[in-house]
Amino acid sequence: MNKLIATLLLLGISGAVVAAEKTAKGSTADAPSAGISAPPSATQTGVGPFNRLLKKPKQLNLPPMEDGIHDPANEGTAMLQPPAEVLADWQPRRTAGNGVNWVEALRQGKINPRYERTDPDAVPIVMDLNIHRPVRSAMPDVIFPHKQHTEWLDCSNCHPAIFIPQKGANQISMSAILLGQKCGVCHGKVAFPITLTECKRCHSKEKDTPYKDPVPTAAAAKTTARP
């Protein structure tokens, strides 16, 4: 009996919290079904939260008053320009990042950001050199375009601290990028992020010969076999 009372009490508290959550979100679903249909947290299931954490945001370009980072009680917040005022009608829209393609915006002349702090007419030093990086998996190879990068950046931003300017000297992996190294110093922070919609912006060159998984030799199979 005690157990039942404790259970009911817990249920009551959970119900109240879920109901509060519901009101905050303005959802129309009733409380119990909202509770059940919500995905279980990784702490409950022990499942790796990787993919779940990289899902795309539901809403892009929220105004500062509603974005959860700016303090709505601060007078200055109301004076800030909402990003949608500027970015919302840039085409084509993207589903990730700022919801826009910055390189395309530059190409279309929607913006002409200064290259020198005080000189609006300074012209960027653009280098047009593609670097082909073969990828050892079924993913298409990477073509790194210097052109798009030098339109925004200076050589010294990347070389030599992030990338050694020498063929074959830089080992790059998606793990490193996701953790904020190599390309990830910008991509995934400010430049377009790593999401399932953006892969082919870098992995853009189909392989000349279709990729085949390496056939494991008997010796290799022995060393990698699980006990």
Partner: peptide
């Protein structure tokens, strides 16, 4: 039901809702 609700609470408690502009 309790377990599911506790899971839901945990989910919302651990993941705060902030959707500021990318790169802010």
């Amino acid at each position: 039901v309790c377990l599911a609700m506790a899971a839901a609470i945990g989910y919302f408690a651990v993941l705060p809702a902030a959707h500021a502009e990318y790169g802010d």
